[in-house]
Amino acid sequence: MWGMIKLTHEYDVTVRFNIEASDLPKDRILVGNTDSVIAITVRAKGLDYYSRILSAQLKPLYFNLKDLKLKRSGDRYTGYLRTSRNTRVILDQLPSGIEILSIEPDTLHFIFEKGFSKKIAIRPDVSLRFSRQYNLYDSIAVNPDSVLVSGRKEILDTLRFISTEYKSYTGLDKDLTEKLRLINPGFYPPVEFSVDSAEIKLSVEKFTETQVEVPVELISDSPPGSTYKTFPEKLTITCLVAMKDYNRLDPSLFTVVANTEALKESSDRRIPVKVIAAPLFIKVIKIEPDKVEYLIIK
């Protein structure tokens, strides 16, 4: 009985709150505030204090600075806010039945700089493992492929890309679409994004390994009118191709060359071969042989 009476008594209690800005003046970024904590003395019944005030002080109090009047000082801008004139703003964020007796400090000071914006590419941070014979058919599509990042110029100049959250996928055997959260790089003051997530699309197909025989073209500084012959005359290219593209594969889509200039920098009399043209829908695994000999026939 005594405990219940005690909890219904009125108490004057001082609680501390971290403060945060919910909106900023246009084209300005907050780089500092001399007062990041305010102490508020409130009057409440004991039951209200223990059950609600204690939990409320774990959350920050937000102040809208959008219409704050600023004074320029060099490259910076300063502004202040009277807490005594924002009692209603504070009360709206506290539990009901609370009476504010005092607020310290009476004035909150804020420091701003001019904000800059820059469009930066989004890079998906993903790990992909496919089912047997399946693979990525095309590069990962990201939508949007970039994000408008706002913040201090010296911070923006260091950013080359913005990563998504890390995600690991296993056993992939079909197309996949998923939205991933963008990761703020963690600078102070923090940068802001025009969007907070990006959608990735994976195009997955079943692949098969196949071989194509392709003739070798010789690039030589031999006298005009000379004819030549390579040994062997054709090479075997082993490649991966999606099943849906298998019938499109043709030797005429490949160009393989051997340049005799390479002999000037090597004691080996065989010439390395190079694939200079191939279909975009295949992946070359190996070339056999990877070197050829040649004979000039006059």
Rank of each mutant, 00 (worst) to 15 (best):
F207E: 12
V149Q: 03
S194C: 02
V147I: 07
V89H: 03
P105Q: 13
I98V: 12
T236V: 15
P185R: 03
A258W: 04
L24I: 00
E10T: 02
E233S: 15
L172R: 07
T8Y: 10
E288I: 13
S197G: 06
L240V: 06
S168P: 08
A56Q: 09
L65F: 05
Q211N: 13
E233T: 15
E99R: 03
E261F: 11
L68Y: 02
R123V: 13
V204F: 08
K206S: 03
M1Q: 14
P60R: 01
P232R: 10
L94G: 11
K234C: 10
T78H: 06
H109L: 01
N184Y: 04
D290R: 04
S73L: 05
C239T: 10
K71D: 11
K298H: 09
L30F: 00
I120C: 06
E209G: 04
L101R: 03
R248N: 12
L108T: 09
D173I: 00
I40E: 01
D173P: 00
E99N: 05
V273S: 07
G79P: 01
I40K: 02
T230F: 04
A56N: 12
E293W: 03
F161M: 05
V256E: 07
T83D: 08
S220V: 06
D173Q: 05
P144K: 00
E213P: 03
V204W: 05
I219L: 14
R160N: 11
D27N: 05
A21P: 01
L159S: 03
T41D: 08
S252A: 14
I38G: 06
L202G: 05
V273E: 06
R181G: 06
V13H: 05
K118R: 15
E165S: 14
L108G: 06
G115F: 01
T41A: 08
T227H: 02
K174N: 09
L202C: 08
A258M: 03
V142S: 00
G97V: 05
D35K: 10
V257K: 03
E233F: 10
P25F: 02
M243P: 01
P289Q: 07
S55W: 03
N86M: 11
H109N: 08
G79I: 06
V89P: 02
E113M: 04
D196W: 07
R270T: 10
I111Q: 07
A258I: 05
A121Y: 10
Q57L: 01
E261Q: 14
S117E: 14
Y246R: 15
R43H: 04
T41S: 13
K286P: 09
I90H: 02
R85M: 13
K298P: 06
D67R: 11
Y62A: 00
K66S: 12
L182Y: 11
P190L: 04
A56W: 12
T230G: 07
L180G: 12
A198Y: 05
G115W: 04
P215W: 12
I297R: 07
Y137T: 07
Y137Q: 12
I296A: 12
T107N: 04
K153E: 12
V275A: 10
F17H: 04
N184H: 13
D125S: 12
I19P: 00
T238A: 08
S55V: 07
D268M: 06
K244V: 11
I287R: 10
P251W: 04
